[in-house]
């Protein structure tokens, strides 16, 4: 399983990586600092992650812009994109779902909460 995660916050990238490793050490994690890096990475046709996690507030290209760009790429149509953010905003979440996000989740306050939410996403999506 390959997971691609984009976030400009180094702490969050580290926490995400630790959490994913504790869930399943066999999962390959590709990290990016902003949306632009994600797009550049996926221009390589051999890169086909099973999940894409995008922080929303990033420099250069935000998560939302990146989501819009990715949903236009045919070969990535079946890849779930999960918006991963600090703040819950129901209106914005609705827009993101309409733009093609598979889910929107709020970054957990505790490390356990982070692990639980990631596990739940990976399992749900994997059993679909």
């Amino acid at each position: 399983m390959v997971v691609l995660y984009a976030d400009d916050d180094l702490d969050d990238r580290e926490l995400f990586a630790d959490a994913l490793n504790e869930i399943n050490s066999g999962i390959k994690l590709i990290l990016a600092a902003n949306g632009r890096e994600v797009i550049d990475r996926l221009e390589n046709p051999r890169e086909l992650p099973d999940f894409i996690f995008l922080d929303i507030n990033m420099p250069v290209m935000s998560g939302k812009e990146c989501l819009k760009a990715l949903r236009k790429v045919d070969r990535l149509k079946s890849v779930p994109i999960i918006m991963y953010t600090t703040t819950s905003n129901k209106e914005e979440f609705k827009n993101l779902l309409l733009l093609g996000a598979a889910d929107c989740i709020v970054k957990g306050i505790s490390f356990k909460a982070i692990k639980d939410s990631l596990r739940s996403i990976l399992n749900d999506e994997a059993t679909k």
Partner: peptide, 17 residues
């Protein structure tokens, strides 16, 4: 709710570990 929350969340998360 966001930018101030972000460092606060970090404090909580790091404390939780």
């Amino acid at each position: 709710s966001h930018d101030l929350k972000e460092p606060l969340r970090k404090i909580q998360t790091f404390a939780s570990r």
